[in-house]
Amino acid sequence: LIDSFIHSELQHRPTIETEEKEMGNSGSSAVNISVNPSRSNEGFYLAGSTITGSVNVQLKEDVSPEDMNLQVQFKGKEKSHVRYNDNDGDGGTTHRNEYAERNIIEIDLPLGSATGGTNEAMSAGSYSYPYQFQLPDYLPTSMSATDDGGECHVKYKIKAEIKGKKSWRSKDEDVEIYVLAKPPSSEKISYFVQPVTVDIKSCCCFSRGDITFGAAADDTRVGKNESIKVDFGCKNKATTEIKYVEAYVKQYVSWNAGGHSQHTEHHLVKQQFMDTDDMGALTKDQIAQLSSNAENQFASRGIDDLFREIKTMVTEGSNSISLHIPHEAKSSYSGLLINVHHVLKI
């Protein structure tokens, strides 16, 4: 698509506006970039979509074609800056910095000479060149994070550059755009956590019983402003009271440069489940009865039966919460320099 567009674009002269205006950089030529796609998602450009725009060139004097080779480039990078402390040998520490960057994508769109390929000189005035290209659908979302003097970014830019034979005629200007990763399939991916049993002890050795619990999330692939429904089931066979049960989504961002790394983490959302009778503490007599009475229905069952009971509680959804992912959450991403991942914990 890009190659066919370039071929057709070189066959046509640009639109010329004779009205002279002060634009962009000072000097004999000036460049101004105008990116005008149909915007959605609050100013983000969706990966896989097509970007159209124009490069506007203002000339203050006549220019020969060889001095006006115009190019447009789209580039995406991940950048990292790690700030760390290093021993200085005298018992103190020295602040040091490491930097790294990596290209995610680079697309060059040479638009040819400003006269559309002829040998005519360009008269002073304003020239407009349309361009168009498609974003790959694999691009990650634009993002940034900071912590303790370090930072990381995923950034995209559209850059226009005039390369003339004379260095003083070379001009460039760029504009940053914000990319939103292509959303995954809308099909939900649910997840059931197998019940786990935790022995409760006091003074590290005296048993106070055990607690068995399980949970399920209706979807593990969610986006900003979407919600996760979490169901919970529990059997408390201990003399210890459960004060509360809480679920939260935690975001982890890490980046590296020069063999060093930094990270930041914080809770995106959290909420408590309601208390139920099954979460209440038992007395010592009740614990003893469960352990010794072979005819007791609950005690006579195996661990598989207990797990099935917990699973039934979870699937019935009698104790559930909804965790709403806020707009400021970052998209999950695994790059060479930057990693963003999220964990649901109970």
Score class of each variant (00 low, 15 high):
residue 52 T to P: 01
residue 54 S to A: 12
residue 110 P to F: 06
residue 47 A to G: 07
residue 61 E to N: 06
residue 42 E to Q: 13
residue 109 L to Q: 03
residue 104 I to T: 11
residue 84 Y to W: 13
residue 108 D to G: 03
residue 47 A to L: 05
residue 67 D to F: 06
residue 113 S to T: 15
residue 66 E to F: 14
residue 55 V to Y: 03
residue 34 S to V: 13
residue 101 E to Y: 06
residue 57 V to M: 00
residue 75 K to L: 10
residue 101 E to G: 02
residue 109 L to K: 08
residue 53 G to R: 00
residue 108 D to M: 07
residue 62 D to A: 14
residue 84 Y to M: 02
residue 39 R to L: 14
residue 35 V to M: 03
residue 31 V to D: 00
residue 60 K to C: 01
residue 39 R to C: 08
residue 56 N to S: 09
residue 18 T to K: 15
residue 61 E to V: 08
residue 19 E to K: 09
residue 113 S to D: 13
residue 27 G to P: 07
residue 39 R to V: 11
residue 89 G to W: 06
residue 101 E to M: 03
residue 53 G to Y: 07
residue 75 K to R: 14
residue 100 A to H: 04
residue 91 G to I: 04
residue 97 N to P: 00
residue 58 Q to I: 07
residue 45 Y to I: 15
residue 106 E to Y: 12
residue 84 Y to F: 15
residue 110 P to K: 05
residue 40 S to W: 13
residue 38 S to P: 08
residue 85 N to D: 08
residue 16 I to W: 06
residue 54 S to H: 10
residue 87 N to Y: 13
residue 105 I to H: 09
residue 112 G to W: 02
residue 51 I to K: 00
residue 63 V to D: 04
residue 64 S to C: 08
residue 58 Q to S: 13
residue 81 H to F: 07
residue 81 H to M: 08
residue 66 E to T: 13
residue 74 F to S: 05
residue 22 E to C: 09
residue 29 S to H: 05
residue 93 T to H: 01
residue 27 G to Y: 07
residue 69 N to G: 00
residue 108 D to I: 01
residue 61 E to M: 11
residue 69 N to W: 00
residue 106 E to F: 09
residue 111 L to N: 00
residue 90 D to E: 07
residue 99 Y to S: 05
residue 23 M to N: 08
residue 58 Q to N: 10
residue 102 R to L: 10
residue 37 P to W: 01
residue 43 G to I: 09
residue 25 N to H: 11
residue 97 N to Y: 09
residue 73 Q to E: 05
residue 18 T to Y: 13
residue 81 H to E: 10
residue 56 N to Q: 13
residue 48 G to Y: 15
residue 40 S to K: 14
residue 37 P to R: 04
residue 71 Q to T: 12
residue 98 E to L: 11
residue 98 E to V: 10
residue 25 N to M: 12
residue 30 A to I: 09
residue 57 V to F: 01
residue 94 T to G: 00
residue 114 A to E: 01
residue 82 V to G: 02
residue 106 E to V: 10
residue 92 G to Q: 04
residue 63 V to E: 06
residue 113 S to N: 15
residue 51 I to M: 02
residue 22 E to R: 15
residue 73 Q to N: 10
residue 72 V to P: 00
residue 50 T to W: 09
residue 82 V to K: 04
residue 31 V to K: 07
residue 81 H to D: 02
residue 47 A to N: 05
residue 33 I to T: 08
residue 93 T to D: 02
residue 39 R to K: 11
residue 51 I to N: 00
residue 26 S to R: 15
residue 90 D to K: 15
residue 60 K to H: 13
residue 89 G to I: 07
residue 75 K to F: 12
residue 69 N to S: 06
residue 47 A to V: 05
residue 101 E to R: 07
residue 47 A to S: 12
residue 71 Q to D: 08
residue 69 N to P: 01
residue 19 E to F: 09
residue 51 I to R: 02
residue 101 E to A: 02
residue 35 V to D: 03
residue 52 T to A: 13
residue 74 F to V: 08
residue 101 E to C: 00
residue 32 N to F: 15
residue 100 A to L: 03
residue 77 K to F: 06
residue 21 K to Y: 12
residue 28 S to T: 10
residue 76 G to H: 07
residue 32 N to H: 14
residue 68 M to E: 01
residue 51 I to V: 11
residue 33 I to L: 14
residue 88 D to G: 00
residue 60 K to D: 05
residue 49 S to P: 12
residue 71 Q to K: 12
residue 37 P to A: 05
residue 114 A to F: 03
residue 18 T to A: 11
residue 96 R to T: 11
residue 69 N to Y: 03
residue 65 P to N: 04
